[in-house]
Design a protein around this nucleic acid. Structure first.
Lengths: 201, 201, 201, 201
DNA sequence: TATGAATGAGGTTTCATTCAT
DNA sequence: CATGAATGAAACCTCATTCAT
């Protein structure tokens, strides 16, 4: 709702966001009541409405507060000319982020299923990943390093989805039982194969 | 709850399941009220509780009633010895089922995200698909037609996930704008490439 | 409601009364639902209403069916001229009946608390006991064997109440931990003392 | 449920307890609806749940609020050395309390019969009375003033039960038609006789 | 008579939101 | 700004009773 104008207000708001994150992770989105949050933040019910219009709004604030952690690309290192190394680096960065934020990813999934407004957020977050990958595919095709028979958009969608779902199953639902390195290796090999890319000599 | 013992009871129960399916599709799981269902089925509130303990239970019944449609294997045709044709057939069958039942797939996705008990159901449904694919991959590896460096389970997971998510994005959320044939083609090509399989001469 | 006119009807009614007794004892009066009874009696809900108007009516029928067991006076033996032996015999008969029908006594207590109509039944059952005792006290007073300063009605009320409550606490709630013989002995001695009666020489 | 933290909250809670007492007395426990209470207390339904989890909990609060009145011993006066006078004083105090709180005693009786959780409360309240009496009996036995052939616990149980039931029948159900003084006199005489105690010279 | 499905009034409980202090 | 009690609409679920077969 409104932005805090005093030091004290800023502290209250921060406490609420922090409390909300804990409660959401613990109870899930639907089972979280406003009073759970104010209780955890150790402040009055009414104070919640000083800063947020409703549950959605705190949820957005929570997501905002963790966006950095999720999206630190840190594709810092140069992989030189090896296209497979580049693919691997991107996959590792993504999958590791999912692993580290598993609870929030699960939460986001849940909220996306419930609330239309968050579906967009989720898609957008995914889209950045997909577009970066589409660009990579196009580049490799131009350089003759990847199968030119593939539609780069569709391929990026498909492969990004593959990696993202794999990460979800390995680190969120744990229905796939595998370590990060194995998941990265498998994803990278499939990805490279799928595009017809091979390691630089 | 209990099973109808008379013809009339069977009719009422069926009417409730049918009504529930419509209301769920129209309103979504969370926004569906028991009275919406009984109203649509044109019977009293209490009648609902004659057959179901709660919303979850009707939902399970709805899902049960559509399982057939979803799981019609109909991989009837023989693809001869062409492994790529076999992959294509499987992908087409799956993706077409998703396309035809888009609303229910969306629903299942939503409910799975909300209610733990349905996550199992969803996983199981997916597992059948994955296991079939894992078997296929193993066979191709044995015959020397697929990359032996891949873990067949992980690969099956990854590629099945890829196809399933692609279908979801193409036919449920429509964030990917593509026709069935194109999706099938892209998926198949990526899948075949990923495994290092090529068309039979 | 109506009395069975056929053999089959009589059997159904009897099954319902029997089932009701079991369910009442198991669940208590309030928690017993009509369907619990028909279920236990293995007949349809509607059949209940062929014989009883409501729960109260079956309950009355149950009580009727066990009245004998509760009220078998069987003060058969002659205690000769010993007034204390007579008092003891009466107390033993009463307390033993309570012990044997503890569950039903508890039930009657419960229903009496809930439903005004059964309070009368309970009082009447008690009244018989009290009046018999009042008559006994009056006789002893006439014969100069009991304290003539006591109001016989009030004394009968008080002492009967004493015995009845003692029985209740010993055999129903079990808050008094004592064997039948001890309870009979204590009650008798107090009773005799209270009236100023002593054993025949 | 939770305790009020403000003056206003305390007032609302008190109004609810007070209203509950009236409604319970008027309607009986079972026929009292939560809305009857909030209506009488002139507040919203939800406010009830701010302070109480359910009907049982208000009932406990009502009972708590009247415990004092019931348990004011006020056996202030000294009865000197006359044991019968002491017995009379105790009986009068108890019976008068029952007379003054007849409606609540009836209520407690009803609820105790219905709800297991209150049986304990009722028993405990009675136990204090019984134990005090057992101590008195033991003392009289030691001093050679009471029949040593009696088990003091059982006798205290029996006689306390006698008085309590007499009070119940005289002032609650009114099936015994007698004035306080007569009831006290009869109870005391029976009690003294039963123990074999006689008035000090 | 027996059956068992259908009915729906009636009660309970939750919790987001407001607002006086 | 913070507080926390008050509000009441809205949904859930039960079960005695009826009645067509």
């Amino acid at each position: 709702m409104s932005t805090p104008r005093t030091e004290r207000g800023a502290r209250t708001r921060a406490a609420l966001v922090d409390a909300a994150r804990h409660v959401f992770e613990r109870e899930g989105y639907l089972d979280t009541r406003i009073t759970d949050i104010t209780h955890e933040a150790d402040c009055a019910t009414g104070s919640f409405y000083t800063y947020f219009a409703d549950k959605e709004e705190v949820f957005a604030a929570v997501m905002e507060s963790v966006r950095h952690e999720m999206l630190h690309p840190q594709l810092d290192a140069q992989q030189g000319d090896d296209p497979v190394a580049a693919i691997e680096a991107a996959n590792r960065a993504y999958l590791d982020a999912v692993r580290r934020n598993a609870r929030l990813v699960a939460l986001m999934e849940q909220v996306g299923a419930i609330d239309v407004r968050f579906r967009a957020w989720r898609q957008e977050t995914g889209r950045a990943f997909i577009e970066r990958n589409a660009a990579g595919i196009r580049r490799l095709q131009r350089e003759g390093l990847a199968d030119r028979g593939l539609d780069p958009e569709l391929a990026a969608h498909a492969l990004s989805g593959m990696v993202s779902r794999l990460g979800y199953q390995a680190f969120v639902t744990r229905e796939v039982d595998a370590k990060l390195d194995d998941v990265v290796a498998a994803a990278t090999r499939l990805w490279a194969n799928a595009l017809g890319v091979s390691r630089a000599a």
